[in-house]
Design a protein around this nucleic acid. Sequence first.
RNA 1: GGCCGAGUGGCGGAAUCGGUAGACGCACGGGACUUAAAAUCCCGUGGGCCGAUAGGCCCGUGCGGGUUCGAAUCCCGCCUCGGCUACCA
Length: 954
Amino acid sequence: MPRYNPATVEAKWQRYWAEHRTFAAPRMPEGRKLYVLDMFPYPSGDGLHVGHPEGYTATDIVCRYQRMRGASVMHPMGWDAFGLPAEQHAKRTGTSPRETTEKNIDNFRRQLQMLGFSYDWDRELATTDVEYFRWTQHIFLVLLDTWYDADEQRGRPIAELPIPEEIAEDEEAVRRYQDDHRLAYQIEAPVNWCPELGTVLANEEVVGGLSERGGYPVVRIPLRQWMLRITAYADRLEKDLESLAWAESIKLLQRNWIGRSVGAEVDFFIGLTPDEDGKPDMKQYRGWLRDRELGGYPRKPEEDVLRIYTTRPDTLFGATYMVVAPEHPFVQRLMQPEQAAAVKAYCEKAARKSDLDRTDLAKEKTGVFTGSYAINPVNGEPIPIWVADYVLISYGTGAIMAVPGHDTRDYEFAEKFGLAIVPVVDPGGAEEVSRDQVLAGKAAFTGQGTAINSGAYDGLATDDFKQLITDDLAARGLGRAAVNYKLRDWLFSRQHFWGEPFPILHELDAEGNLTGLVRAIPPDELPVDLPAEMKFDASHASPEPPLEAAPADWLYVTIDGKRYKRETNTMPQWAGSCWYYLRFLDPKNSDALVDPEIEKAWMPVDLYVGGAEHAVLHLLYARFWHKVLYDRGYVSTPEPFQRLVNQGMILGEMEFSGYQDQAGAWVSASDVKINPAGQPICRNAHEVVTPRKVQPGEVEKKGESFVLKARPEIRVESRAYKMSKSRGNVVNPDEVVREYGADSLRLYEMFMGPLEAVKPWSMEGVNGVRGFLERVWRMIVDERSEQPALNAAVRDVEPTEEQNRMVHKTIKAVTADLDAMAFNTAIARMMEFTNFFLKEDVRPRSAMEKLVLLLSPYAPHIAEELWQLLGHEKTLAYEPWPEYDEAATRDNMVEIPVQIQGKLRSRIVVPAGADRAELEQAAKADPKVAELLAGKQIVKTVVVPGRTVNFVIR
RNA sequence: GGCCGAGUGGCGGAAUCGGUAGACGCACGGGACUUAAAAUCCCGUGGGCCGAUAGGCCCGUGCGGGUUCGAAUCCCGCCUCGGCUACCA
């Protein structure tokens, strides 16, 4: 047999697996089930990236291993195929997005198949398949048909929503009331419209009010949008994290994103008819207090109060002013004639800024006084109301009480505009702040302490105060305990063509205008496909969705004589990935999104692997949909993904870079810093410097850092960067496979380091594992023979005791590492095995077979080939995983370190089972130890059997 | 600013519960084979020092302290890098 040639071996076995449907999963699990899922990729035009196979190889190893351990394994793959690039390509070239998408999918499939992953390709699906998004649309209808019952903490059919008596007779009012409670609802929300590009942009695509691409102006204009009420599930999404086997850091990320906080709502009286000075009438105020005392705290605030949310009700006495967001509905009312012009101008300016710009922390606080006042309910003091964009309309009530003494943002604002600062919390001995400054109103203290300047509450600890004042406010009908979330409802529509159409019709009146009422397309009439004939303009002139230009026979529908217009927004890319794990179980079902019996048998996903970039949004959205489906009886588990592992990013090769000034002279990296514009500048000259790539041969290590060999005073940076086209450090898997083979690529990606770690790529490393595979090959195969033949050293003999120990040790270690997903160390153990047996002149066939089986999950092609050569006819994919004998792994003699005063002084070799007394005696008998102990007094002897002996002497 | 993670040879990394730091691989150096090169095989490889050799000593896991017979590992205080997040009241 010739030398190891991955190209032929890999093609051969890929063909074999496909022909024999080796990895087809059964409809229902047979025995122990295991559902292992990869985050399916977006099939971009660039093709596979070496980052993709990292997670895919890890899951493939787990699947192949578990099949050998008898598990019934579900391991599917598909495509998250909707996406903007295909649509932009269509605008440029006229090629339909479907065509582009299918071409990209074909390329991705080819690349994945070339890597030998054991997917059940019969289950392949794409979110763009009409038969798939039919069910995505179906789930949208479920969301539309569901309201959240806060008392029962679950989603229920809209038909079960209790209707208030006063509207029960009015059919249209009932419909609108229901619409207000559905999990899918419509609002007017601002979008980032870029007229120049003719497209609507996501928030992160807008920088400084300009488009990231091209730098064109972006305006925020309101458009009708679909929203999903994910906030209704915030509590459950947070609580149920506890039950999941995810990394704590990822759970924390989700918890922070949900951002639950506990505090209080408080109403501040503003009155309907303020006095000329903008202050509320005190008589009205007292009347209001009485009304509240009797009537209690209303669910929705009346027009004469400003409702705020705070997590620090204990600082109410320090509230010296209030702020409302520029979008707050009261702004119009609150601005007094004198301030009106300034307030209007401020609000208009704020409206033009994107959310991102508004939250740019580098900038100073801005705001304007409205001219109006509110009354602080704890002390009856009128306090001014300002408008400022540091208050967000989308959080809490869109208005705050400002406590500059105990909130850094309010403090900055009060400082800038000369507003009163009243300290109400004594920091006591708190370390982070100077108590004197806080008490003098010269610094903000945000921690907990003791109440001061707070009337009868003085002296209370922060937590007690919070509790007490919340109760008191509730008793007086002025406030109540409240919970808030950072999580916002999910903006679920996009102004794109290439997405799932909504199964929604808008009712038209006689003039052809929307009446505001919608009609859902019944589930049995799905799917709603995209129009087949569609022209794409390079740019269109309005932010309206492209489907507004769809052919009329698609756009307009008449039912029972009534005219309707289709919804022209489409769903966001997240939609399809919210439930694909369910469809994989039953991909061809035309009666249901998944057969309940099958769902019950396979769910939940036992292991889900993907990049940490999806740690928040994708996982949160999918969990949300899953919970709705759970509430509505479509799925049997409250959570979809039992265990989650995030693979770390693979960076480009290590690079050295130095800096040169404009004259071309080297500048030491230690003298370079980054200026606010993000450019590297020289610390001394304040001159912009240029990074230059330096070859590894030109640098050497000096102390802590690298320097130029020729100029040792010039420090250079050594670092690996994220792979990117612009940096030119992208590694293409096609090339790696062509040069080294798929098995080498797989093995290298697992050998680089722990799966979760961020790791730099190294082509030399790939070459290294290729060398390992060649050594394995030579260990078993006769390279010089023309015909396939075993190496003459491989014989049908019993292993020697030493060989047997190596075999069993290796099985034990590789199995344990695999269970811990510590693939890098498992590979190292197999290398040790190979290094050992290459030196053996006689290599028992049984030992070689064991190694081939251990290696097969990592490098399946070469393993199949060697397995066949060792005399087996069938695939090894379902061979039993090798067992080890614990007794056979134990060494007869072990080396034990002997320490004196904790310092290593000698090593003794003793029988493996030596007890304390034997160890101590052997240690004392060691000539070196005896010499060092001579004449000394042994104070203490520490003996850890199997580990160490330590003498403490005087 | 907040949160999370990480700092171990020239490089990627290993080290179970606190018990021989540097497994395994790369790179590098030396040697064998070869007309030669590649491939392959063998040997060496954290730093410093003593020694003719055999061998031995000291230092060493980002920095400074601490706990312990013993610390890469535990505790306290810093530094650096990376990721996520961004005025959430």
